[in-house]
């Protein structure tokens, strides 16, 4: 693997994923190459069924490719056993599911602390880190609430806090702004952007251009392939020429 500049936190090399076999087989991803560096924020857009969630699941080690390799911090996920994979997921990867996947019988802070405690962090330390993550998403005062005492937007923030707790290096989020009002959506983008600026690699699946625009790079998927990429120019002079009519 070539390493130049900031290292690759995530690397997908010729990754394909096919569901089913024979005549009914569905190719969800076809030979996708995609790398995300430390500090880089990448947004993924594409029509429904284009393979966005499949891509995210492979990147997070929740699913295995039919062919090709997935590397997280240079570790080939294909070479890991189930326990090792689970440990890597708890330590390095934060994942926000489309439907949050929060535990209803736990409080917000307990939900956020869960991956740390499963990984052997002492309860008090895990609790402290959980509160810190809840503060980053703007709801430290809701730490002791149960899920059914929170709005959809608040639960979404808990899910994001759980993904960023303990300085995860790779943060993967599937439409995390789904049912959010625009102010909350903006807040979620600020948190994700902040994690990337602090050195994490962030991948966001979204259909909102306004949210994708927070990313350094926007990747367009269609029929399981990357068909386009847009990178910000970061050139103020260009910006003014564009805007001036």
């Amino acid at each position: 693997m070539s390493v130049q500049g900031p290292h690759q936190v995530l690397e997908l090399a010729k990754v394909s994923r096919t569901f089913g076999e024979g005549a009914t087989a569905v190719a969800a991803l076809r030979e996708v190459d995609l790398s995300i560096r430390a500090g880089e924020f990448v947004a993924v857009m594409g029509p429904s069924g284009s393979g966005k969630s499949s891509l995210l699941a492979l990147a997070g080690g929740l699913d295995r490719p039919t062919s090709g390799g997935v590397f997280v911090e240079s570790t080939p996920l294909g070479g890991l056993g189930l326990n090792e994979l689970a440990r890597l997921r708890r330590r390095a990867v934060g994942y926000v599911f489309q439907d949050f996947n929060l535990v209803p019988t736990l409080t917000a802070a307990e939900n956020v602390a869960l991956p740390l405690e499963l990984d052997g962090t002492a309860a008090r330390k895990a609790q402290r880190q959980a509160i810190d993550a809840l503060r980053q998403v703007g709801i430290p005062e809701l730490a002791d609430r149960f899920m059914d005492q929170m709005s959809g937007g608040q639960q979404q923030r808990v899910a994001i806090a759980r993904a960023i707790v303990g300085n995860r290096r790779l943060i993967l989020t599937d439409e995390p702004t789904g049912a959010l009002d625009s102010t909350t959506g903006h807040g979620v983008m600020e948190v994700l952007r902040g994690r990337a600026d602090a050195g994490a690699a962030v991948m966001l699946v979204t259909h909102e251009a306004r949210h994708a625009a927070w990313a350094d790079r926007v990747v367009f998927l269609r029929d399981g392939r990357i068909v386009d990429q847009a990178a910000a120019m970061h050139d103020p002079a260009m910006l003014l020429t564009q805007a001036g009519h």
Binding site: M45, R193, A209, R210, A212, A213, W214, A215, D216, V218, F220, V227, D228, Q229, A230, A231, A232, M233, H234, D235, P236, M238, L239, Q242
Partner: peptide, 20 residues
């Protein structure tokens, strides 16, 4: 449409960064 979408989102990225 796709070419324009890429260009528009690129502009949106720049505006969003400048705003931030």
């Amino acid at each position: 449409i796709q070419a324009q979408r890429v260009a528009s989102i690129r502009a949106l990225q720049d505006y969003t960064k400048a705003r931030r």
